[in-house]
Design a protein around this nucleic acid. Structure first.
Length: 107
DNA sequence: CGAGTGACCGCAA
DNA sequence: ATTGCGGCCACTC
């Protein structure tokens, strides 16, 4: 097996996990990376988010401290709008209280 | 093939 | 509180 293939598996896991995040809940890039077997590959999740399929709920993926994504379609403003649409509070600094919305698969 | 970049993260100073 | 750095690895010159 090539390591390239393993990465593809990682990617599939990330996509599946993101697709499972419930409405009004969020996960961080690092959290997703860890659950998919690469504890320190948060950046890769960011890459996947950037190049990945638009139909997944990427608005439910935020940074570990609740920061929104500048590279989101429409920038942080667009991200904020999509989060607000599901009832998630975003402050004027484009941040959320992650402890209030974070989701772990077992919940 | 090498180097730089990035929707990140945790730790150190 | 702020800044810097190494690590992860796909993608683009």
């Amino acid at each position: 097996m090539t390591n390239g293939h393993l990465s593809e598996v990682f990617k599939e896991r990330v996509l599946a996990l993101v697709a499972d995040i419930p409405r009004r809940r969020v996960m961080s890039y690092g959290q997703i990376a860890a659950l998919c077997g690469h504890p320190r590959a948060a950046r890769i999740v960011g890459q996947i988010a950037h190049f990945g399929p638009d139909e997944l709920p990427w608005q439910r993926v935020v940074s570990a401290r609740g920061g929104l994504a500048s590279g989101y379609y429409g920038g942080k403003e667009g991200h904020k709008k999509d989060l607000a649409a599901e009832g998630i509070e975003v402050d004027e600094n484009y941040q959320i209280d992650i402890s209030r919305y974070v989701w772990w698969p077992k919940d």
